[in-house]
Simulated assay, not measured.
Amino acid sequence: MAEYLVELYVAQGDHTAARRQAASAERAGTDLAREGRAVRYLRSIFVPEDETCFLLYEADSADLVTEAVARAGLRLEHVSAATTSVAGAQESPDGTTKGTRMTSTTSTTTSTSTTSTTPTGTTGAPDLAELRDKQQKVWSSGDYNKIAALTVPVSEHLVDHVGVSPGDRVLDVATGTGHVALAAARRSAEAVGIDYVPALLDIARRRAAAEDLAVELTEADAEHLPYDDASFDVVLSAIGVMFAADHEAAGRELVRVTRPGGRIGLASWTPEGFVGGMLRTVGAHVSPPPGAQPATRWGTEEVVGGLLGDGVTDVRSVTATVRQRFADAAAFADLFLTYYGPTFSAAGRLDEEGRAALRADLVALAESHDRGEGSRGLVCDWEYRIVTATRR
């Protein structure tokens, strides 16, 4: 039998969650083996800094491993046929093996025949500039303006929650089509927005002109804000900075440009919510670029507090949901596969069979979140978290 690695997401690098996942995976493998199936759980490799737990199985096929993971009630990110052994891992007291680096594996996921040679947790820093360029191209693909309207309520909630007031100088980081910047301008604030996708900034400018709102819009990325220290009373981002390539640098920049006593407010999709599930579904079909961190880390208060660091105080958060309606689950999947950068880009890397499998998984995800209220169409609640902090 061949050896296979299963990659699972572990929010916040939680040791207890990793141990629980490993125990469930072991029980599922044992149950299948008792049924005469050619699959055997071997061990787990936990890489907390990457929020990842790898499960090592021995089996006749990747399909059997996928079945074992499904029986364990776990959502996998990838199933890979291990061509080399796991290195740098040590047995830990909590029952998992903690890994510090891992050699390359060759992807055998059924949705794509693409070969992956991306090491996880390897020594050597990832090329974040290259990653930023790749992500910029992803967000420039599709037509995000067709999707952006879904997040208007999130942006309005963020501006209200932080309490933007007339005369505040407000920065909207990763403004996209300008939701937060426009909402701040409507409250008579001095609104500034940055984004690294020129086409989205053009849309934001047209929207501002249509409402006769004064909004300054500049092309820049979240890791290199073109402003002096302490330039803003309020720094905000709604479903934006969470997609930065370098999370640590973006966190430092948010703090740097906020004046002492100023406020930072960030709205991000949660790992546990609908969009967190959608991004994991995409990742199960197409491997993320080397060095990419889960965007939904920003949907966890403790992670954001760590990214903002000692320069802030009074870190707190609230969760909320935004209700979304579609004709049906298929309409949701087709909308996002056609227009939403991450799903559009992922689908473009797959063959026809792979795209069909991705679409089927997106449909299944949407159906699993349908509130089933008896009304026509699909009704889903998408969870997000607003984290606020005060600059010291």
Score class of each variant (00 low, 15 high):
6 V>C: 10
10 V>G: 05
16 T>V: 07
20 R>P: 11
25 A>N: 05
26 E>Y: 05
29 G>Y: 03
30 T>V: 14
38 A>V: 15
41 Y>V: 10
48 P>T: 08
48 P>M: 02
49 E>D: 08
60 D>Y: 10
62 A>L: 07
62 A>H: 06
64 L>G: 01
65 V>A: 00
70 A>R: 10
72 A>V: 15
83 T>N: 11
84 T>V: 07
87 A>Q: 07
88 G>Q: 08
88 G>I: 04
92 S>D: 08
94 D>P: 00
98 K>R: 14
105 T>D: 09
116 S>K: 02
118 T>Y: 03
120 T>E: 11
121 G>Q: 15
125 A>R: 12
125 A>H: 14
126 P>T: 15
127 D>R: 13
128 L>F: 14
129 A>G: 01
130 E>A: 14
131 L>T: 13
145 N>Y: 11
149 A>H: 15
153 P>S: 09
161 H>M: 02
166 P>G: 06
172 D>V: 09
174 A>N: 05
174 A>T: 07
174 A>I: 11
175 T>E: 00
180 V>L: 01
183 A>I: 15
190 E>N: 07
194 I>G: 00
195 D>P: 01
198 P>Q: 03
199 A>R: 12
200 L>D: 00
207 R>P: 01
208 A>L: 05
216 E>M: 15
218 T>A: 07
218 T>K: 13
219 E>F: 15
221 D>P: 14
226 P>H: 05
227 Y>E: 06
227 Y>I: 06
233 D>N: 09
234 V>I: 15
235 V>N: 01
242 M>G: 01
258 T>F: 01
260 P>T: 03
270 T>I: 10
270 T>N: 03
271 P>L: 07
272 E>M: 09
275 V>A: 06
283 G>A: 06
289 P>N: 08
290 P>Y: 07
291 G>W: 06
293 Q>H: 12
294 P>H: 13
298 W>C: 01
300 T>F: 00
301 E>P: 04
302 E>T: 14
302 E>R: 12
312 V>Y: 03
314 D>F: 10
314 D>Q: 10
317 S>E: 10
317 S>F: 02
320 A>E: 11
324 Q>V: 07
326 F>Q: 02
326 F>I: 10
326 F>Y: 10
328 D>V: 07
331 A>P: 06
331 A>Y: 09
336 F>P: 09
338 T>H: 07
339 Y>H: 02
340 Y>I: 05
342 P>T: 09
343 T>A: 11
344 F>M: 13
344 F>A: 12
344 F>Q: 05
352 E>N: 06
353 E>N: 11
358 L>N: 15
358 L>C: 15
364 A>N: 08
370 D>F: 11
371 R>E: 05
371 R>Y: 11
375 S>I: 13
377 G>K: 09
384 Y>K: 11
386 I>S: 04
389 A>V: 01
391 R>Q: 03
